[in-house]
Nucleic acid binder design. Structure first.
Lengths: 234, 234
DNA sequence: GCAAAAGTGTTCTTCGTACACCCATGG
DNA sequence: CCATGGGTGTACGAAGAACACTTTTGC
């Protein structure tokens, strides 16, 4: 990079795209927007848009998330995922996109109150089964985002990002079961979560009932890394 | 992104930068180039450069690596690290860089035979200790790259990327000790590596001596993921 | 009381850690 | 034979897996 001519550089547009995941109706779901214009008219696309001239990448991701979903950064975990810049990925021009992964709780207002009224949640399994349902290379972004989310549940307490601020251990377990697609022993999971220092903190309240003994309510704990991690069934 | 005007977009340059790491002289070292021009004249910079108009990101990283070090992709493990695009990170213009992490063996021809004759290996510890020795935000890239490398040694067989094609288990252990900065029990490490299926494959040869009983030589095994992982001392 | 879900205790086994011990070579 | 590093065996303890069992609620 030393001594390059700052008036002469390849014309590239930079965007951010968001893989926004949630757990709804016993399924891992992603936020998608139906494209109204060519190319890929009628296909689903991930929310995203240009990075503004004086805006950092994280800020652009947070802004797009807010514009397209009404979600603010404090509700949702957002982290950078990866960048995608294959020359032909957008037929109109050279676009390099920085993808972000966002994990959101299943909010009462799913995706309303925003510009994109046509944004909606769809099960990841459906999007991945229907070949070519996603525009551009967004199937790649989705695959990588889901893979990252699955991996991160193992060694971080991020499953709580899919839960409301207060949650029961059973709700947390349900997140793991949906994201990993495997049943988990409730008893061992309970012990693991409640004995790992800093994973969750007890509120003292108990939950609304759904059948049996009331469950204690917890909030996210202070730790960022689970050590030792939770083991995913192989 | 639906329906944007492809002739009107913010002027952003896209580059790739490389965090190239190796293990040399009992230290984790990074490849750096002394800057001859302003800004940051005289400081160290990571190798990198513009992404060409019809070039993918991975291809740009591989090209820059080859141009600046003579290393080809088959010798070295290269993976995307993260992207950095803070508005002021390059004072001349808006530059978004896609950082790559490369892990190279300690080659006999360190960084010669290339454009950048001023490229050289420096210990990561020295670069991180000397505040402001690195140009731009390259200290961030280096920190993130080192962190990624340390983490990846735990759950992938990538330590072998720091070794020549054939290596002894002691050489592999030395990589772990240098990258993690902690001594490892040679006996348990030997058992772990040799009993984890697919981590390494025996060649049948034995190594040149350095004191004791000759060591068997191994090559990289076929597995991509270590399961269970190696535990890093905490 | 019964069903259902929360939460605890116990056993078995696996695996990391520590370290004693043997092997193969050079000097 | 001794020093040096390579490689194996074994005992201990921590932690996951499986599951019996108790607790607390609604009906």
């Amino acid at each position: 990079m030393p001594g390059y001519d700052s008036s002469q550089f390849p014309a590239v547009a930079v965007t951010v795209d968001l893989v926004v995941l949630t757990v709804r109706d016993d399924a891992l779901q992603a936020l998608v927007i139906r494209r109204a214009e060519e190319p890929y008219r009628g296909r689903w696309a991930l929310p995203g848009g240009f990075v503004l001239p004086d805006e950092g990448l994280d800020a652009a991701a947070a802004r797009e998330l807010h514009e397209e979903t009404g979600l603010s950064g404090s509700d949702v975990h957002v982290e950078q995922l990866a960048s995608y810049g294959a020359p032909g990925r957008d037929p109109r021009m050279r676009v390099v996109t920085v993808a972000y992964l966002a994990l959101a709780p299943d909010l009462p207002t799913p995706s309303a109150g925003s510009d994109a009224a046509d944004a909606q949640w769809l099960p990841v399994a459906d999007l991945q089964a229907a070949r070519r349902s996603l525009a551009f290379d967004h199937a790649d972004l989705l695959r990588d985002g889901v893979e990252r989310a699955r991996a991160k549940l193992e060694y971080t307490p991020l499953a709580a990002a899919f839960c409301p601020p207060e949650f029961t251990i059973a709700e947390l377990r349900h997140v793991y079961e949906v994201v990993w697609g495997d049943p988990i022993d409730a008893r061992n999971f309970h012990r693991k979560v409640s004995t790992t220092a800093g994973f969750v903190t007890e509120t003292g309240e108990t939950s609304a009932r759904d059948g049996g003994r009331p469950a204690r309510l917890y909030r996210r704990g202070p730790v960022q890394l689970l050590n030792p991690p939770l083991m995913r069934p192989r």
